[in-house]
Design a protein around this nucleic acid. Structure first.
Length: 470
RNA sequence: GGCGAUAUCGUCUAAAGGUUAGGACGGAGCCCUCUCAAGGCUCAAAUCCGGGUUCGAGUCCCGGUAUCGCUACCA
């Protein structure tokens, strides 16, 4: 029994277990971008909702573009997002023999053939060839190798000619499948070209690698970006040729930039890690991402992870591409900054203050309560984590001569250092830590110094500060 | 060029053929307030266009348009 046959048996065995098995399969050609993160999130939410298994697989079969060092960044991005995998990561580069075995089987069955043509360089999406009469020529001619006799093939192989393996798509008939999001699909087989499944280097292409692995790993639901919708008929053909049971496909719409083109580097921040660095909370990012292309069917939008899990269903996934709206993401973040139990927020504030060098260990021990109260007081006015070390800096630092941008008349007022120094004491003395009580304390303090109290809270809002100094 | 998909406020979306087409972000305004936020209230803002089917269409069908995707020995 070869590796491929083992895989088939394994997939049949796994299909007996009714729990869904899903996977996220990024390729390490870049960082984890928001589109990939959303796909991963949907897979994860689905798995958690169904009590299934979420598998991580690294599709690293493109030696040219592959950057192994990027894998760790992708894993970190997923961890930050809170999307933890149950199996893997598996690496396709370590499973090469099973793809080769599958290709051999297809070759033997006559479902595939060796192609001795020169590999054509991808010319770009707009490379419409020009015909003599205004460009009406088919873009690529069918590969002639399909019609070679077996003696001709053997001869070429004996001569040492390099070859790729192409799938021999049926020339007639239709291929059908059901998509959980887009509904029933049907394409003419004549539209499906003889695509390469194994490169002349012996490495598999995406189509083969994905199908062989999804079969071997017992994947029951293939949830991925809608850019793969058009490729799915090819994969259905492969499943059939390999005697594999078809999974349920679910294609999720793409995420676009503000100009409605596919989100890419030129749209600025597309890497998940950038949002982590900017000071977004993972919970907020998750909530935002979940609602981009999925709706619970009701008006609720503030959904904690546990609610997302219990309400997630493929039937709520949209078919329309969506624009990534940063303003709404920021709104979600400010909501989570305010509504999260303060205890859950403190670790994030701590690491933010550590990052900016303001952290003091006593806030974790003897002054723990003071720290919690101060954060609680400050948080309605924050939008991003770094706000705690910028405009709220006066609450955590004795050094008032900081951020040059933040300097205004207020900071040049000789009364200020003394005032701020008294602030912690005043807040400390409060019996009741509600917002009103803090306001009262601030006002009393400010009045005695002849300064408007709002200034203290608005530490770095220069314009207001400037006009309001008594 | 070929094939396919999609189409509701600027954006994310709701409305299992029957609602004054709802909510949220963003925008405008008011309230609260010694500031800035948060919070509360109000306003502006959409069914791509054209034909059908139906008593009745955002919803079903057909055409057009636009957008996106695939059309690589990328994934």
């Amino acid at each position: 029994m070869d590796v491929f046959q083992q895989a088939v048996i394994r997939s049949v065995f796994m299909a007996l277990d009714s729990k869904p098995r899903v996977r996220f399969a990024p390729s390490p050609t870049g960082y984890l971008h928001v589109g990939g993160a959303r796909t991963a999130l949907f897979n994860w939410l689905f798995a958690r909702h169904e009590g299934g298994t979420f598998i991580l697989r690294i599709e690293d079969t493109d030696v040219e573009r592959n950057r192994p060092e990027l894998v760790e960044g992708i894993l970190q991005g997923l961890r930050w997002l809170g999307v933890e995998w149950d199996e893997g990561p598996y690496f396709q580069s370590q499973r090469l023999e099973s793809y080769r075995a599958a290709a051999e089987k297809l070759l033997k069955d006559g479902a595939a053939y060796p192609c001795f043509c020169q590999a054509v360089q991808y010319a770009g999406a707009d490379a419409a060839p020009e015909g003599e009469e205004g460009g009406k020529i088919a873009r690529s001619a069918p590969c002639p190798c399909r019609d070679l006799t077996s003696t001709q093939r053997e001869q070429k192989i004996r001569d040492g000619a390099p070859y790729a393996i192409r799938f021999a798509s049926p020339r007639e008939g239709v291929t059908q499948f059901e998509d959980a999001v887009f509904g029933p699909r049907e394409v003419q087989n004549a539209e499906i070209e003889d695509f390469v499944i194994l490169r002349s280097s012996g490495l598999p292409t995406y189509q083969l690698g994905a199908v062989v692995d999804d079969m071997a790993m017992g994947i029951t639901h293939v949830i991925r970006g809608a850019d793969h919708l058009s490729n799915t008929p090819k994969q259905v053909l492969l499943y059939r040729a390999l005697d594999g049971a078809l999974p349920i496909f679910a294609h999720v719409p793409l995420i676009l930039g503000p100009d409605r083109t596919r989100l890419s580097k030129r749209h600025g921040a597309t890497s998940v890690s950038l949002y982590a660095d900017e000071g977004f909370l993972p919970e907020a990012f998750r909530n935002f991402l979940a609602l981009l292309g999925w709706s619970p069917g009701s008006d609720e939008e503030f959904l904690l992870t546990s609610e997302l899990i219990s309400r997630f269903a493929l039937s709520g996934v949209s078919r329309t591409n969506g624009v990534f709206d940063r303003a709404k993401l920021e709104w979600f973040n400010s909501q989570y900054l305010q509504r999260l139990p303060v205890g859950e927020l403190l670790p994030y504030v701590k690491s933010e203050l550590q990052r900016s060098g303001l952290w003091r260990d006593s806030w974790d021990s003897s002054e723990r309560e003071w720290f919690a109260h101060t954060v609680d007081l400050l948080r309605p006015r924050t939008r991003l984590l770094p706000d705690f070390s910028h405009w709220a800096r006066a609450f955590f630092s004795d050094d008032f001569d900081y951020d040059p941008e933040a300097r205004g008349k207020f900071w040049k007022d000789p009364k200020v250092p003394d005032l701020l120094a008294k602030l912690a004491d005043a807040l400390d003395a409060l019996a009741d830590w509600n917002h009103d009580a803090c306001d009262h304390a601030l006002r009393a303090l400010a009045e005695s110094a002849g300064v408007k109290a709002g200034l203290l809270i608005n530490a770095t809002r220069v314009a207001i500060v400037g006009r309001a100094v008594a």
